[in-house]
Amino acid sequence: MERKSFQAVILMRLIMNKRKTYPLYFAAPAFIIFIILFLFPNLISFYYSFTIWDLKNAVWCGLDNYKMFLTDPGLMLSIKNTLIYAVTTCGLKVIVGFIIAVFLTSGLRTKNLLRSIVFFATLISSVAVGIMFKAMLHPTKGIVNTFLQLFSIQGTDWLGNTGTALGSVIFADVWKGLGIAVVIFIAGIQSIDRTYYESASLDGASKIQIVKDIMIPLSKSARNSVIILSFISGIRSFELIWSMTKGGPGFATDVLGSVVYKEYSSGYYGLSTTGNVIMLIFVMCLAFPLQKFLNKNEEV
């Protein structure tokens, strides 16, 4: 009997160990993909950022690339533009996206059609959106200035003026990315228990009070998701800006992504790789604390 009980204990331990290791088989493919497509390229980029290379030969240069990149006169302006771009696009997507989502979760009969129309811009590539807005904002042939002339308003060179170029690109980015924000907000609002609305109606709450006291607090998870996604997208922005202004006029719309691309196109591969590493560190230093702060507030 003792021998049988001992064998049973050993068998149970083997079964428990198999149960513990069994989920690892499911995680292994994702872990392998993560190593191949993310970890390994980042380690290689980190190495090449300390070298001068021409895609064939690499010569170690230490921190010279970092010193040269950080002393570039256009870098500080590009960092400033990147922060302005990321914060502004993020804020507008959150505010405008929530307002549209509230409107599209009401009892409107055509709300499904309007949801499709709002989401349509997300399906268009960033380059196509950039080309479209570049044509619309043309100083003489663009539809925007042509429309303003109907009201005797003199338009400006929206993309050629240093005072309006960055704002014009921001508007185009918000137009394109608003669909994702609206969809996330709609999902967050629709996940709210209907009993909250019923209780508010019985208490005689107005629509504004329902939005303020129910929708805004209880859709916090959706709002946090929109903030994180929009902010990271703003920091990593490149395609839309390049297709509209190429960082101009001058350096008015230069962001980190466009500065890195200019270094690549000029043949400074080691220096441009340094820029990519700096941009990765920049994203991590801003996005991770922001996500931690939002998650902390969500739990409160």
Results as ranks from 00 to 15, higher is better:
Ser199Phe: 05
Thr274Cys: 15
Leu286Met: 15
Leu63Ala: 12
Phe147Tyr: 09
Val183Ser: 05
Ile32Thr: 09
Tyr269Ser: 03
Pro29Phe: 08
Phe103Leu: 15
Lys246Gly: 10
Leu218Ile: 08
Gln149Tyr: 09
Ala252Tyr: 05
Ala252Leu: 06
Ile235Trp: 01
Leu256Tyr: 00
Val96Cys: 11
Val118Lys: 00
Lys80Asp: 02
Leu166Ile: 13
Ile33Gly: 08
Tyr197Lys: 03
Leu159Thr: 04
Thr88Tyr: 05
Ser225Phe: 11
Ile241Asp: 00
Ile281Tyr: 09
Ile117Asn: 05
Ile79Asn: 00
Ser126Lys: 08
Gln190Leu: 14
Phe98Thr: 05
Ser233Asp: 14
Asp72Ser: 09
Phe50Cys: 09
Gly163Ile: 05
Phe119His: 02
Lys262Gln: 13
Tyr196Thr: 04
Lys207Trp: 09
Phe251Leu: 09
Lys220Gly: 10
Tyr261Ala: 07
Ser258Glu: 01
Lys296Pro: 00
Gln190Ala: 11
Asp254Asn: 14
Trp53Tyr: 15
Ile232Gln: 13
Lys141Tyr: 12
Leu218Ser: 07
Asp64Tyr: 09
Glu298Lys: 12
Arg109His: 12
Leu108Val: 08
Asn42Ile: 07
Ile235Asn: 01
Asn295Ala: 12
Ser125Val: 05
Phe26Gln: 02
Gly250Ile: 07
Ala287Pro: 01
Pro23Met: 02
Ser237Ala: 15
Val259Ile: 15
Val255Cys: 01
Leu290Tyr: 04
Glu298Met: 11
Gly97Cys: 08
Arg223Glu: 11
Asp173Cys: 08
Ala8Cys: 02
Ile235Thr: 00
Ala222Lys: 04
Pro217Thr: 08
Tyr47Ser: 09
Asn276Trp: 00
Asn145His: 07
Val211Gly: 10
Phe34Trp: 12
Ala200Asp: 02
Gln7Val: 06
Trp53Glu: 11
Asn224Pro: 01
Ser266Arg: 10
Thr71Asp: 10
Lys262Gly: 11
Gly247His: 00
Leu290Glu: 04
Trp242Gln: 09
Ala222Val: 01
Ser219Asn: 05
Tyr48Ser: 00
Gly91Val: 06
Asn57Pro: 00
Tyr47Gln: 10
Leu178Lys: 06
Gly257Trp: 00
Phe6Gln: 13
Lys292Glu: 10
Ala121Val: 08
Ala222Met: 07
Thr21Asn: 06
Phe31Pro: 01
Leu123Pro: 04
Val211His: 06
Gln291His: 03
Met279Tyr: 03
Ala121Gln: 10
Leu159Met: 05
Leu55Trp: 12
Tyr269Lys: 05
Ile192Thr: 03
Val144Leu: 11
Pro23Asp: 02
Tyr196Gly: 00
Phe282Tyr: 14
Asn276Gly: 15
Asp173Lys: 09
Met76Ile: 11
Gly257Ser: 04
Ala86Thr: 04
Ile208Met: 13
Thr156Asp: 10
Phe46Ala: 15
Ser221Thr: 13
His138Arg: 04
Ala101Asn: 04
Leu229Val: 12
Met76Arg: 11
Trp158Glu: 03
Phe40Tyr: 15
Leu271Pro: 01
Ser237Asn: 12
Asp72His: 08
Arg236Ile: 04
Trp175Phe: 15
Ile10Val: 14
Val182Thr: 09
Ile131Asn: 07
Cys90Asp: 05
Asn81Lys: 03
Ser106Pro: 03
Ala58Cys: 08
Leu166Arg: 07
Asn81Gln: 05
Leu218Lys: 14
Met132Tyr: 06
Leu70Cys: 10
Leu286Cys: 13
Gly155Lys: 01
Leu290Ala: 07
Ile95His: 07
